[in-house]
Amino acid sequence: MADRVITYSEAINEAHTQEMERDPNVILFGENVSSSWRGATKGLKERFGRERVRDTPITETSFIGMGVGAAIRGLRPVVELMLVDFGLVAMDQILNQMAKSHYMSGGAVKVPMVLRAAYGAGTSSGATHSESLYSIFAHMPGMKVVLPSNPYDAKGLLITAIRDDNPVVFMEHRLLSRTKGPVPEEPYTVPFGVANLVREGSDVTIVVTGKMVGLAMEAADDLKKEASVEVIDPRTIVPLDEEAILNSVGKTGRLVVVDEDYERCGFSAEVAAIVAEKGFNNLKASVCRVATPNVPLPFNPTLEKQLLPDREKIARAIRNVMA
């Protein structure tokens, strides 16, 4: 079974299908979710009907807030943001209402909602259609933040997200949608807060998420004669598997953090700070970050490429910490 190979989008589609079969309270809405062009959701309306699968007006504030309310009243909405950048118009509903209603109510209400959002650069789309922004969601207490890097994790993490009683921001990299990988046909869960040891090594730890995992693997291959590289994909940045990161750095003594989000106050800074606070004595070299510089992503493909983390930049960072 595990040998069946499907795409990242198909894996996400299958997770929706199986969860909607299992639980009638799971509903899905967002912009164009019934479109046959949208691999992650196509066919769901035909299968589950227009009550449970709905196309919304292009009004993120109202439909995300509607998801919060529906979740409070016992449904399990999966709400799709076409691109994470579009969520910026709905920050009140995401950061105030979705994230904090459980806490503000002293636990009287819960918000079992999944906000799915496509993210990521590399398509020459400019600064409102390319960003990552997951650090913003990780910053606000109350939301879990999930970044699947492959089809297997995409399906298992989405099923976990739908079954979780907390709000979950589930971020799908745009350029991973057609990547293929082995995915079991039966439903399964991938736990939150458990990092995936993608590659074992002894000289350098790379902590990396999403699409960047593939690039880190390529860089590690490129330098395999110079350094034994361990690659850790946390899979969820809230909750974060700190133990896996600290244990790995305890072994290697060197840390590179690769992060597609903007560098300042972001996930890369968080991982560096955790290791500085709790694993400083194990470090043999300064921590090195490879993140998108604090520049809005430009349209011009050459300018965009120059800003993004890539195989060469990761390889340079590995050499830096080895020097």
Binding site: S62, M66, G69, A70, I72, D92, Q93, Q97
Partner: peptide
């Protein structure tokens, strides 16, 4: 519930209504 953001509860109420509709 009550809401500290002006207009903040209104989209959520649509969610309560949606739950009744479904």
């Amino acid at each position: 519930g009550a809401n500290g953001i002006v207009g903040g509860s209104v989209p959520m109420v649509a969610g309560y209504a949606l739950a009744h509709q479904i």
